[in-house]
């Protein structure tokens, strides 16, 4: 009897071996062809991508007292942007010229907080998943220009003129590409005072605040003029 069990045991092992071996043999023979899924429509940045990210901080923001001595204002907010929507340049010296943002920039710009060295609160990036920060954000090492520019800086959006009715929720007066996460600029101690939202705990911003300028969602809208009502 004992012998039968031993035989069964080894034959099971043997069968298992054959199965495993076969599987690995056949998968080794598989051609390296990768099937490409049927062409999908382009992966657009959905307009509300990231609107909810960072919302877990909303409640915390609500409890945060206003630190009026260290508030930013809208004017300075636009100072280091070439136009409304341009990536801001870095207004402070950087620690490490070479490293990826994931090890330097994000230390402060992921969650924010007070930085005593600069006597300011670190603004929070709306896109922490993009870590080659210096691809778009550069430092300022001189005030001088190579040649004067005649570029016209467009008036940026201002506050107080975006309501349809007295008391109605203001529309979003700027484009949101690359800054779909509303709370990163509109809440917390680093938010410019004028645009700091009174109700950061409400996550679904676009429920009430709609885009004044439709983000482009298809080619049609890219190429045709938006018309007024």
């Amino acid at each position: 009897m004992k012998r039968i069990w031993i035989i069964i045991f080894f034959s099971v092992l043997f069968v298992a071996f054959i199965i495993v071996w076969n599987k690995s043999y056949w998968s080794g023979l598989e051609e390296s062809y990768v099937s490409v899924e049927k062409e999908k429509p382009h992966s657009y940045l959905p307009i509300d991508r990231g609107v909810f990210s960072g919302s877990e901080r909303g409640l915390r923001y609500e409890e945060m007292p206003y630190d009026e001595a260290h508030q930013r204002s809208l004017e300075t907010y636009y100072d280091n942007r070439a136009y409304d929507g341009a990536p801001p340049s870095i207004p402070h010296p950087v620690k490490e010229e070479r490293s990826m943002g994931s090890v330097t920039c994000l230390q402060c710009h992921k969650s924010g907080g007070f930085v005593s060295k600069f006597d300011a609160y670190a603004p929070i990036t709306p896109h922490p998943e993009m870590i080659n920060c210096r691809q778009c954000h550069v430092t300022k090492n001189t005030e001088a220009l190579f040649v004067k520019t005649e570029f016209i800086k467009k008036e940026h959006a201002s506050v107080g003129n975006n309501n349809a009715l007295p008391g109605s929720p203001p529309v979003v007066p700027h484009h949101i590409q690359m800054r779909e996460n509303c709370l990163s600029c509109h809440a917390g101690p680093a938010a410019p005072a004028e645009i700091r939202v009174t109700h950061p705990q409400r996550e679904n911003c676009m429920q009430c605040h709609v885009l004044k300028m439709q983000e482009v969602t298809d080619r049609e809208m890219n190429t045709t003029k938006f018309s007024l009502p």
Binding site: N163, P166, P170
Partner: peptide, 16 residues
């Protein structure tokens, strides 16, 4: 009925 207004002091104030 007034819709919006600006004045030098309250360029930043909201009508809401």
């Amino acid at each position: 009925s007034m819709v919006s207004g600006y004045s030098p002091e309250n360029i930043t104030s909201s009508t809401s």
